[in-house]
Design a binder for these strands. Structure first.
Lengths: 142, 142
DNA sequence: TTGCGTGCAAAGGTTTTGCATGGCA
DNA sequence: TGCCATGCAAAACCTTTGCACGCAA
């Protein structure tokens, strides 16, 4: 296996700059329409390929919200707590909020499952789905 | 809103009988090819519609494994362990295999995160991504 | 007889791939 | 100059929908 060279292109920089400016999650269609509106259209394939690379670099995460709508992506700020290896992600199904969690118990579980069940979980690719505290309080009120 | 009548057809009975016999998860394509092999082909639309109904009835669960492969379904035997909430899913990024895991430690973690971090994880929607034992052995060999 | 279910094909949407061209190093 | 990235279109894929026909009740 050979190491692939990585060229830095205008499109890639533009994409990264744009997604850095987003505070929320975005889809490939969002990125495309943003650049189309600026008169500098980008092919969807280019966006998919750029995001794929950013995912490998750990700068972007991909979320499956539901299987027949477009995938959601999110920029991971390298200076935020997410740059730490002990940062796990919880996604609220209700409000869509992404919660960061730093919890040693998760590491313990990953270790346990590796030793006892032979499966090595990659927490950078895994997202817990559920309901956040705010939304569960909302539910009780109504 | 009117209540819809529910006709019991041969196809629906056949589908339910087949998926009862599965111990694992299955896709719509699996169901179709099973009946095609038996010389009694079923339209995919029929299978989707039948499963949709079974989901409403609580007999089947649908898992989103990843957004561009087919959805996974699973029969919920009312008497089996899967009726319990202790059935978790691990997806191998290498071979794509979906592994079932029954591990009390996961429940403990879910409980811990709920109590200490206020987030209620829904394990029916959460899939752990990683590398399975078979694939990690393959890696060391090469 | 009523009206739901089926089956086929077509449409819908997202994502991937092929290939010629353009651009980075 | 070598090779990767881009862009366009086509393909691949899963899933839904429309419509005529069949079949359960």
């Amino acid at each position: 296996m050979t190491i692939k060279k990585h060229y830095q292109t205008k499109q890639q920089l533009a994409i990264e700059e744009y997604i850095c400016s987003t505070t929320d999650h975005f889809t490939v269609a969002d990125v495309c329409s943003h650049f189309r509106a600026e008169g500098k259209p980008l092919g969807a394939a280019t966006v998919y390929r750029a995001l794929e690379r950013l995912i490998e670099e750990g700068k972007v995460k991909k979320y499956i919200i539901d299987e027949q709508s477009a995938a959601c992506f999110e920029y991971i700020n390298p200076e935020s707590s997410c740059a730490e290896p002990r940062c796990y992600h919880l996604k609220c199904r209700e409000c869509g909020r992404l919660v960061h969690l730093n919890c040693g118990d998760i590491e313990a579980l990953v270790s346990h499952i590796h030793k006892r069940h032979g499966f090595l979980i990659d927490m950078n690719r895994t997202v817990f789905y559920g309901i956040c505290d705010t939304c569960s309080e909302e539910r009780f009120k109504s």
